[in-house]
Design a protein around this nucleic acid. Structure first.
Lengths: 135, 135
DNA sequence: CTTTGCACTTGCAAATTGCAAGCAAAGGTA
DNA sequence: TACCTTTGCTTGCAATTTGCAAGTGCAAAG
């Protein structure tokens, strides 16, 4: 993985340099859904990320301070990944993506409940989630 | 450009299938900054997108109903690209990206003013912008 | 009627992705 | 203690995508 250098000073561009590809935000999503994930948990997601891609993305996210690695309480063979504050702060973006998607895609049943909660009280939803994620 | 098929039913994943790469959201940004852009306008952006990449991205965005092509009033040799409602609806996402970036990057001077406007009144800013973009 | 500008397309090398296999360390089982 | 399994990666390699440079076709300007 080549060192990704900033393409410009634009905030959108700088942000995309950190998480702007087809896989990274899915990792973030998994961590927001589950609070912590092991390497194997990410591999279980329905999109089917390849193991080498997952490894490079996790390393980049860690280097960028978006996630961190923790010891697993049960076993040294396992690793726990968790969002940092910087990662948790991506939540409003994920929320808005969900709201956009709701308008233009069919949302699967298991995602509907949290979407309704967002629509009922976006700010409250985000505050609650941030607390749960340990920010 | 291969037909990009949906990787899953997840709203985040479906959204990324449409605009989740390092270039597409910069095209959207340019259109939100300028309301309409020509092909050459996109090429002038500081990130320096290659002409072939630009062409494939514009085609995909058009096929996905995010942008549309208009005749240029001055000349048939020119083309105007413009956001559809579906594209305009991406504004809240771009706004949240800007707010995230503000926390973790240095924002260039020319971007600060609109960021302050967002922070002062996010909903008002979005409403005003949507009107300007002709939604 | 030649030149210039604009919107792309094409060719090709280099980088990235995706798939399958491999591997070391930790833990469980006998 | 020896042996299998799980977990978290790394490696090799083909296929796809990117990035750069050059080229093409059509309008409009001179």
């Amino acid at each position: 993985m080549k060192k990704s250098e900033k393409r410009s000073e634009c905030p959108i561009s700088s942000s995309l340099d950190v998480w702007g590809d087809k896989w990274t935000l899915l990792i973030i999503r998994d961590l927001m859904d589950a609070k912590t994930c092991t390497y194997g948990d990410f591999l279980k997601s329905p999109e089917g990320i390849a193991t080498n891609i997952l490894a490079t993305r996790l390393r980049a996210l860690e280097e960028n301070g978006v996630i961190l690695k923790l010891e697993h309480p049960d076993s040294k063979a396992k690793v726990l990944y968790k969002l940092t504050q910087k990662g948790i702060d991506l939540l409003p973006i994920l929320v808005e993506i969900n709201l956009w998607a709701e308008k233009y895609f069919t949302i699967p049943a298991e995602r509907r409940a949290s979407l309704e909660a967002v629509k009922r009280d976006k700010i409250g939803f985000i505050e609650t989630m941030i607390k749960e994620l340990g920010g």
